[in-house]
């Protein structure tokens, strides 16, 4: 049993302490925008913000996440207005299958918070999410578009 603070709301979840945050978010809280891709923190599909830092939630346990501010893709828009990264994603028609894009967008939103005008090298170093459709060209364009928005 733990109290998770997700998207500004405190939610009690009845799970074992070693349950990965990913599965508590998906199965116990019921927010399914955060995706399972590998379970070993390789692919980044499950990326969320923990205290405003991008983290792969499959590798974070409930006990580590409790008491921290967790933001999922569902909490990125504020009062119904899409985050500038989401807006850039829409404007640049970034997603293909879209499955990895929640994690990709969360990783990019965290990058832009840290580096508002990232260089291509900053992007290469910070964005290591796997996209099997391979929409990287649009991801890069949209990151720069969001940075300049």
């Amino acid at each position: 049993m733990a109290n998770l603070t997700i998207n500004g709301k405190t939610i009690p979840v009845d799970v074992e302490d070693d349950t990965p945050l990913l599965w508590a978010i998906r199965e116990n809280v019921g927010l399914t925008g955060t995706k399972y891709g590998c379970g070993i923190a390789q692919c980044g599909a499950c990326t969320v913000h923990i205290d405003w830092v991008a983290m792969r939630s499959c590798g974070v346990s409930i006990s580590e996440a409790a008491g921290k501010q967790i933001t999922t893709i569902e909490g990125l828009a504020v009062n119904g207005a899409l985050h500038k990264v989401q807006q850039a994603w829409v404007a640049n028609d970034v997603p293909q299958c879209g499955y990895c894009q929640s994690g990709m967008i969360m990783a990019v939103a965290a990058l832009l918070k840290e580096k508002p005008k990232p260089t291509n090298q900053d992007i290469d170093e910070a964005i290591t999410n796997i996209c099997r459709c391979g929409t990287f060209q649009q991801v890069r364009e949209a990151i720069h578009a969001a940075a300049n928005a």
Binding site: L31, T32, I73, E74, D93, P95, G98, Y99, S102
Partner: peptide, 17 residues
């Protein structure tokens, strides 16, 4: 533009999983 983009950026799109 694709017709399925917005829901793929907000986490709303429903996949089988």
């Amino acid at each position: 533009k694709r017709l399925d983009t917005v829901d793929k950026t907000t986490g709303k799109m429903m996949y089988g999983i």
